[in-house]
Computed example of a mutant assay.
Amino acid sequence: MRVIAGKAKRIQLRTIEGLETRPTTDRIKETLFNMVNNRLLDCDFLDLFSGSGAIGIEALSRGAGSAVFVENNKNAMECIKHNLNVTRLADRGKILLMDAVSAIRALEVQGRVFDIIFMDPPYNHLYEQQVLNALRNSGIVYCDTLIIIEASKETDFDYLEESPFHIIKEKIYKTNKHVFIEPIQSA
């Protein structure tokens, strides 16, 4: 796995061993970043369920102003630290060793607001629904925040009909999908 474009282009990234994380393939990562490239420059990026940190690091490499990495696996956190150091992007990255919902609350207290929130939770456990519920009235989200969820193809998002969010786009791959969500603008 490597950084695809930007300042850290071609630098190899470390992943944690085992089946606890599923690194996003370079091809899917490239497709994702081609879709959001116009929103990256100087943005504040939140990478939930960070794994190796590859998505947040790609965002930093392509011009994001800052990235917060949230991961509750200590081995993955060490991997993120290593990858930030090897790409020389550590000065723009912050790492939180905690679960996603706790991190959202901690970031609210700090007064943080994010332009892009990416999450790649373990598939088919409804963690994305829990996170979206936490984001529902959260101060880290504003009217133009883009929320991107990497999920299994089978993941159902019908519950969004009863939420302040709506799907603006879906990109389906062979085994998974990216769902792009924004807050519903109030009239």
Rank of each mutant, 00 (worst) to 15 (best):
155 T>G: 02
62 R>K: 05
44 D>A: 15
172 I>T: 10
35 M>C: 10
138 S>A: 12
119 M>A: 12
170 E>I: 15
182 E>Q: 15
38 N>D: 14
86 V>E: 04
83 N>C: 09
4 I>F: 03
162 E>W: 03
139 G>V: 08
111 G>I: 04
44 D>K: 15
24 T>N: 02
95 I>P: 00
187 A>F: 11
63 G>V: 06
27 R>V: 12
95 I>T: 11
34 N>V: 00
104 I>D: 01
23 P>G: 09
70 V>H: 02
178 H>D: 01
56 G>H: 04
100 A>C: 12
33 F>W: 05
128 E>Q: 14
32 L>R: 03
22 R>K: 07
135 L>S: 05
157 F>G: 03
113 V>G: 12
21 T>D: 04
64 A>T: 03
24 T>V: 10
78 E>M: 15
178 H>A: 12
104 I>Y: 08
86 V>T: 11
120 D>N: 06
157 F>V: 10
93 G>M: 03
151 A>N: 08
179 V>R: 05
151 A>G: 08
127 Y>E: 07
25 T>Y: 00
137 N>A: 14
187 A>K: 14
168 I>G: 05
154 E>P: 05
120 D>E: 08
106 A>G: 02
88 R>G: 04
148 I>M: 05
151 A>L: 11
166 H>R: 10
174 K>T: 15
117 I>K: 02
159 Y>L: 07
105 R>Q: 13
54 A>S: 13
76 A>Q: 00
96 L>H: 07
147 I>V: 13
173 Y>W: 02
29 K>E: 02
52 S>P: 05
171 K>I: 04
78 E>D: 14
65 G>D: 05
63 G>W: 06
166 H>L: 08
105 R>T: 15
